[in-house]
Design a protein around this nucleic acid. Structure first.
Lengths: 219, 219
DNA sequence: CCTCTCAGGTACCGTACGGTACGGTTCTGG
DNA sequence: CCAGAACCGTACCGTACGGTACCTGAGAGG
């Protein structure tokens, strides 16, 4: 939860304050609402300071991504001994968290911003967003996969492929639909449970009769 | 493949020509490159005509989506008798087509456009894109699911849920990554095959030893 | 007390966009 | 041949943005 871990050249408190306002503006009104004048007014600072701190408008955007990423720290409690039940709970927790994060206001706004800019900036923001925003959650997931394999609870050849399978089962096309404006799911937990069930049927060790999981349909 | 089926109030040939240029501009330069003046110049028409035909800039955008959707007609050859092998081939074909469509220039550009506008237009474009663009492919997939069930080759309670499972297995987070500027997969076929294998392990009737499919890892 | 630095506030500039108006040209139908 | 419509090209208007310049005030340090 500590924003500054001295591994990245963070911003000053005042600058963080400004970036917070920038995120607010972006969430509320999208790309168009995030103007330099508007941000200066909302954050009670001068445009000149904005340009001194961030260079130009693009600099503000990249700073916003870095700032937002610095706020996210995944609680990685991976000390516990892995039983099948614990693994299942971890996976479900991860699925819920994933859906929660992807559907969050700020995440959606930043993704929309980066996607909108992709066509004209050579995906600079996109790369940044994927790297900064995704690394944390990917690491957590990969750690979970490997731990499951070591504990003899999961079977796969390629952890990355297995993770992407799980990701697809959890998210499906939900992320894009939310980016396009659809409301999220009513029940993230249910979706996560279904995804874990399917994933364990594919990569778990215990051979479930596949019929057991087919009764859990409904979306 | 016939663009006009008289079920939608299509545009005149001249207007289609203009919309074609609009799509070209959008693909090449994104949102910002699609200005009314630029479109008028590129399409050799007057701005006044643009406003007469489409109302305003938003009208042009919605017309572009409708026009693009009108070009897509899925070849639905569902007359054949379904065997397991045929179903598998159909599913793989569908997966390949899906990845192909989602990764196409025009599709990505339109999705980026709609996503970029979502924050400020109440997801009008997004709804339109999902409805027009997705309906065709969703119908084809659902027909495939139901046919597979009727033929006793697939088992599920909820066809929609099964379809979304398949969708997730095929696409995973690829769509969003491509929207963010990452290049697509080198080999769509391989991805489709892996997805079908997993999907059949979950919802097929023949009980494959799950190990058979775990050896096919690698991404 | 003086000075230097930093930051806020405001005014300003150039540009580029969406949208409108107008004159000239081609096509069509009688 | 003529009248009307459709359309192209261009010029124009208001606006709003990104970015810059200038002035003011508040602390910090000597």
């Amino acid at each position: 939860m500590r924003p500054d871990t001295a591994d990245t050249p963070q911003f000053s408190p005042r600058q963080n304050e400004v970036l917070e306002q920038a995120l607010r503006l972006l969430v509320e009104g999208g790309d168009k609402a995030l103007t330099t004048s508007g941000l200066a007014r909302a954050a009670s600072c001068s445009k000149e300071s904005l340009y001194k701190w961030f260079g130009d408008r693009d600099g503000v955007l990249t700073a916003m991504i870095a700032y937002q990423a610095s706020k996210v720290r995944t609680a990685d409690r991976s000390g516990e001994k892995l039983t099948e039940q614990v693994l299942k709970q971890y996976l479900e927790q991860f699925g819920r968290d994933l859906l929660e994060v992807l559907g969050g206001d700020v995440s959606l706004a930043l993704n929309r911003l980066a996607i909108g800019q992709t066509s004209r900036d050579g995906s600079k923001l996109g790369k940044l967003l994927v790297e900064h925003g995704r690394r944390q959650i990917d690491r957590r997931a990969m750690a979970l996969m490997e731990a499951g394999k070591r504990a003899g609870l999961l079977r796969f050849e390629n952890a990355d492929a297995a993770y992407h399978t799980f990701y697809g089962l959890v998210v499906s096309d939900l992320h894009v639909r939310m980016l396009l404006g659809e409301p999220g799911l009513k029940d993230n937990s249910r979706q996560a449970e279904r995804a874990v069930e399917a994933f364990l049927a594919l990569h778990g060790v215990e051979q479930k009769t596949a019929d057991a999981l087919r009764v859990s349909a409904g979306r």
